[in-house]
Simulated assay, not measured.
Amino acid sequence: MVHLSVNVNKIATLRNSRGGNHPDLLYISKLILEAGAHGITVHPREDERHIKKKDVFDLKEFLLRYNKEKGLKIEYNMEGEPSSRFLDLVLSAKPDQATLVPVTPGEITSDHGFDLKKDSKELASYIRKIQDAGIRVSIFMETDLENLKLVKNTGADRVEFYTGPYAHAFDQSPEKGKNAFESFQKAAELLVSEKIGINAGHDLDHFNLPLFSRLPGLQEVSIGHRLMSYALEIGIEKAVKEYLKALN
């Protein structure tokens, strides 16, 4: 089964736009989990434009209580740039997984993976420190095969594919989406051969997931923006269930 981790950044964005605690991040996260999601993802950026430092720890405590009450193992995934700021946050909050993502100052959202010819040495240092704390590490990557061959040098446990190109091709037509999927399939086969786990995320939705869920070795997808957009139409619980249906 491919796991669905729901990114709740957009809930925090809406809350922050007005101040106060509406919508309540923890309450909405509970609705998401009650609908069947397997995990919660946050990307606490330095400017705190959505997830704040306090949210990181509030969600950690909420998930600890939820898992204990339900007898489940809901995973907590934190995304962020390789920096001392994010490292300190990860080591303090101790999520189940840390996903390292390259960040360009001023960007609206993450829109590219690491270039390991430049980044592998620095990444390896951060990865070792995070893994030493018992936390699984994933790194955000595109599908270039030569670049992916360097993943093993970093020591990362998993790769999270940046799926924007696939999603945007699928938006144009399912046929174009199918063609774009082929590069992900070849990339996934390489990672599977090297025993590196596979996650994916960015603009995946209930239309393009049925095809993408066939990706060899796919273990988890992290989805926020499109799921939340769909939730405005049909409600958060129905949206999560639709995505789970499309995924599996």
Rank of each mutant, 00 (worst) to 15 (best):
Y126D: 02
G235V: 05
L227N: 09
G224F: 01
K54Q: 07
K152A: 07
V101L: 09
D47C: 04
F57D: 10
L14S: 09
D144K: 05
E69W: 12
D171L: 14
M78W: 01
P95N: 07
I11T: 08
S92R: 09
L26Q: 02
V192P: 04
G19D: 14
A124L: 01
K94Q: 07
R128F: 08
G197A: 04
S229K: 13
I74W: 00
F114E: 06
A167Q: 13
A93K: 00
D115Q: 08
H22I: 13
Y166K: 05
Q219K: 13
E46C: 01
L148D: 08
D111V: 07
S17K: 02
L64A: 10
L191F: 05
R226V: 03
E61M: 10
P23I: 06
D24N: 14
L100A: 02
I28W: 13
R15C: 01
A12C: 13
D144S: 10
T99P: 03
V159Y: 10
R15F: 00
K245Y: 05
L14P: 03
Q185I: 14
H202R: 10
K68C: 13
G113Y: 02
Q185V: 15
E34L: 11
M78E: 00
H225T: 10
D132E: 15
K186Q: 14
Y162K: 00
L123W: 05
H43Q: 11
I40Q: 02
R85V: 06
H202K: 05
I234H: 01
L14I: 14
